[in-house]
Design a binder for these strands. Structure first.
Length: 333
DNA sequence: GGGTAACCTTA
DNA sequence: AAGGTTACC
């Protein structure tokens, strides 16, 4: 059944089809930290002042909500196993459906399509023809894209990320929103029972929070970096807007001037928050991947980053996301 | 410049 | 240990 106050599940026009594992990777694979899987395997997430749910079209049998007029072309195989275990990354692609609070749905839908980068075709320029391993990774996650997230939120998320796992980062971010974020516009607010949805705090709001209160959000030593960054941004109110307009290298230089932002976090923010697809974040997973799959034993992060930029070119960031996803699931092999 | 420890907390 | 950065040798 669909929730009262929420729109019925509706196919998202223009969205690619996804195998379940790819949708999970895209929403909860380390790009974003505000998507939470629900008991019915749908996803609920927030970005900016948007709140939405996503799911993959369930099969015909046992469909809990009255079937809409969703076309479902070429879906004969997927329908045979609507609840098939996500045993392999390659289960059959299914169509994406969305739902949102009724009051905000008209603005949510186009925002969602933009956020999910449904129109992005960057994968077409990946050098898969000359790189068998990259081709394997791409084939394993068909439809995977780089999200288009709000710049400020992306910066906050990755300032939280240092030596933390995704689950922990999500906890920090949830606490920051709960304690320091503004409630979403009233129309959406009665919808989640006792839990009012809140936006993430803006950087201006963060500048008014004490470091101690930030530490109380489980930020640990990252609290000092976030406070320092908030102070710098508060001293220069146009910092985010100005940086967002700069070309890749200049934007990176500015990001690196913030406390707590080094090479890796800068590249993540450039990639996920500013759409600079040439950024190639190198973390411990990428070191493992390049060592194991390309024989780059003993290479430093800076050397691996250089290799990535040269080898993968203008879509290096997307290549990184495929390699990252593959390594996290196939790392042992 | 490269190598190493400290930084917080929790899974 | 964990998806890093910084400070200091």
């Amino acid at each position: 059944m669909s929730d009262p106050g929420w729109t019925p599940w509706t196919p998202l026009d223009g969205a690619p089809t996804f195998p379940p594992a790819v949708l999970a990777e895209q929403l909860d694979g380390g790009q974003a930290f505000r998507w939470h899987r629900q008991p019915d395997d749908s996803w609920q997430g927030q970005w900016s002042t948007h709140l939405a749910r996503l799911r993959l079209a369930p099969g015909r049998a046992g469909s809990p909500s009255p079937p809409l007029q969703s076309p479902q072309p070429t879906d004969s195989k997927a329908a045979s196993s609507p609840t098939a275990p996500p045993s392999t990354p390659l289960t059959s692609p299914q169509h994406l459906e969305w739902s949102a609070p009724i009051a905000t749905a008209p603005t949510t839908e186009p925002a969602l399509r933009h956020y999910l980068a449904c129109d992005d075709t960057t994968a077409a320029i990946l050098p898969t023809a000359s790189d068998p391993h990259l081709a394997t990774c791409v084939a394993a996650y068909p439809g995977l894209r780089i999200l288009r997230q709000p710049f400020g939120e992306t910066l906050l998320g990755f300032l939280c990320s240092a030596t933390k796992q995704i689950v922990q980062i999500k906890q920090m971010i949830a606490l920051l929103a709960e304690r320091h974020g503004a409630p979403l516009p009233p129309a959406a607010c009665h919808l989640l029972g006792d839990k009012l949805p809140r936006a993430l705090p803006t950087w201006a709001q963060l500048a008014t929070v004490t470091e101690a209160d930030l530490r109380a959000c489980q930020l640990g030593f990252r609290a000092r970096y976030i406070k320092g960054t908030a102070d710098m941004l508060a001293a220069e109110p146009d910092w985010l807007a100005t940086t967002a307009q700069l070309p890749f290298t200049a934007a990176k230089t500015r990001l690196l001037s913030l406390p707590g932002v080094g090479e890796k976090i800068a590249d993540c923010v450039l990639l996920f928050g500013l759409g600079h697809h040439a950024a190639f974040p190198v973390d411990t997973w990428m070191i493992k991947a390049m060592t194991r799959r390309y024989g780059l034993d003993g290479w430093s992060p800076a050397q691996v980053a250089h290799f990535g930029r040269v080898h993968y070119g203008p879509a290096a960031g997307l290549a990184q996301q495929y390699l990252f996803a593959w390594e996290r699931t196939h790392g042992a092999k």
